[in-house]
Simulated assay, not measured.
Amino acid sequence: MPGFVLLVRPRGDGDAGIGIGYTVSKKVGNAVTRNRMKRRLRALARAALPQAGIAGADHVLIGRAGGNDIAFSDLGEHLDSALQRAAKKLAR
């Protein structure tokens, strides 16, 4: 997805909780830019993961360069799409 990468991995420990992690490398920009990207990723996760997240799995959002330039609503749509694709792959 443009703006971020989503990684999902089932824990297999029997806990139905949803884990979440964020990372933004220095390649994305300076500290101000990285922190803004992390705030946006946290807000996206807070809005989308309770409904669309995969129970019993850890989710990692990795910020990419240019993610701050994309409209927040578009990032939300990208996250929903990525979560649907991840759920489909894990269902196999």
Score class of each variant (00 low, 15 high):
residue 47 A to W: 02
residue 20 I to V: 15
residue 39 R to F: 04
residue 71 A to K: 10
residue 35 N to G: 09
residue 70 I to P: 07
residue 40 R to Q: 05
residue 81 S to F: 03
residue 11 R to L: 06
residue 4 F to A: 05
residue 37 M to D: 01
residue 55 A to F: 00
residue 80 D to H: 14
residue 87 A to E: 06
residue 6 L to E: 02
residue 91 A to L: 03
residue 49 L to T: 08
residue 47 A to S: 12
residue 18 I to P: 11
residue 21 G to K: 05
residue 8 V to F: 01
residue 80 D to I: 04
residue 92 R to P: 06
residue 83 L to K: 00
residue 28 V to P: 04
residue 81 S to L: 10
residue 58 D to S: 01
residue 78 H to E: 15
residue 85 R to M: 03
residue 68 N to L: 09
residue 43 A to S: 12
residue 92 R to D: 13
residue 90 L to D: 11
residue 90 L to W: 01
residue 53 G to R: 06
residue 82 A to M: 05
residue 14 G to K: 12
residue 28 V to Q: 04
residue 15 D to L: 13
residue 12 G to P: 05
residue 29 G to A: 10
residue 84 Q to A: 15
residue 41 L to H: 00
residue 81 S to N: 03
residue 77 E to Y: 05
residue 79 L to I: 08
residue 66 G to A: 04
residue 83 L to V: 02
residue 18 I to F: 02
residue 19 G to A: 10
residue 77 E to T: 12
residue 56 G to I: 06
residue 56 G to A: 09
residue 54 I to F: 00
residue 55 A to T: 07
residue 59 H to C: 06
residue 42 R to E: 09
residue 32 V to I: 15
residue 31 A to L: 03
residue 79 L to Q: 11
residue 10 P to C: 02
residue 58 D to E: 08
residue 4 F to D: 07
residue 5 V to H: 01
residue 6 L to C: 02
residue 76 G to E: 14
residue 11 R to D: 06
residue 59 H to W: 02
residue 23 T to R: 11
residue 49 L to W: 05
residue 21 G to D: 14
residue 31 A to D: 06
